[in-house]
Design a protein around this nucleic acid. Sequence first.
DNA 1: AGCTTAGGTGAACGTTCGTTCACCGTAAAG
DNA 2: CTTTACGGTGAACGAACGTTCACCTAAGCT
Lengths: 193, 193
Amino acid sequence: MVDNNDHIHLGRLQDFYATHKSLPPYAKIADICDMRSKAGVSKLVFRLKRDGFLQVAPGGRLAPTSRFFGRPLVGSAPAGFPSPAAELLDDALSIDDYLVEHPSDTVLVEVQGDSMIGAGIQPGDYVIVRKCQRAEPGQIVVAIMDGEFTIKYLDRDEKGYLLRPANAHYSLLRPEQELSIFGIVTGQFRKYS
Amino acid sequence: MVDNNDHIHLGRLQDFYATHKSLPPYAKIADICDMRSKAGVSKLVFRLKRDGFLQVAPGGRLAPTSRFFGRPLVGSAPAGFPSPAAELLDDALSIDDYLVEHPSDTVLVEVQGDSMIGAGIQPGDYVIVRKCQRAEPGQIVVAIMDGEFTIKYLDRDEKGYLLRPANAHYSLLRPEQELSIFGIVTGQFRKYS
DNA sequence: AGCTTAGGTGAACGTTCGTTCACCGTAAAG
DNA sequence: CTTTACGGTGAACGAACGTTCACCTAAGCT
């Protein structure tokens, strides 16, 4: 463990980033961390980079790493007591980052109907959809039928593609002529009031 | 509505930010957006600021606004064709903000087991848990039994509280003595590989 | 046609950036 | 009691920053 004040400085930076979604220039960091010289900041930044909290993004700007975000992820620890120490699992900074890999061509669609209830997709849920025309059998897709969105498994048999609901009360859909795919379902989320 | 290419440029910036958690300097933005001059970027940034996608953080750095993160929300529009124009209309929301109302006492728990499959909560999903000791019957809670997390409906009958799975293969759990509630499930999300 | 609007270009310019250097004070190690 | 290591200081400096300007081109309008 560290015996210096870097974790305090880091905390200040985390607060700033949480508020402004951006890291300030060195002069402002000095301000935030009660330092009086940019040279001190330069050394601080060196340490935080070395320790894996900061990195340099393309273009040269300072950027946070995944380690910069203290994110409470509690594992379903099978044994023992759920300790806060076991929280830090890596790789996702926020739910947004985890669910949306390509923001520019990703949209949300609200689920209507219970045709996918067997796949854990309920009415009122939102699905995260990456817009694209091509999809693989087995994927859950948003297709356009009769001008409406419909969410189904994409399947194919010897006669061609078909849309399969995850609900025994619905039947297979075989597109009349051409199947119009709006996008691929890459995620799903739901909120309990 | 816009008739220019700014939403494409914005998309590039969103992708960059999603990857690097930081906005690049103008020269790099020009690079990203296939522009050849910083002057063009300057005008682009002016427009994106005017339209509420960007702002200037303390220190003078460019920073995203909440609108920058808003994901286009495509309704299950019953009529008409889903036009890209309809997407950009203001129904944008940030998944984080939507799902997590109280960040300071909210944690994520990975779901293990299929005891809540009937409620659309599958193994591998994440549930958003607001830590608190009190819960109401009917809510989905994370309880601690034998040192392990367990996700169940909280119910109560004339004999007291009990934990009810959403899976016919599991049976009701009546806590031996005291029921230890870790938190209330306020949301759920899942990612498809 | 002629005019206007709007996005983009390329160069110039003053400002600000982050680095570097010698130096200071404290605290642990020899 | 030195010595060393380390975080921070203050000034100086070249490089990079974002703005500004005149100009270009294409599209829309009358």
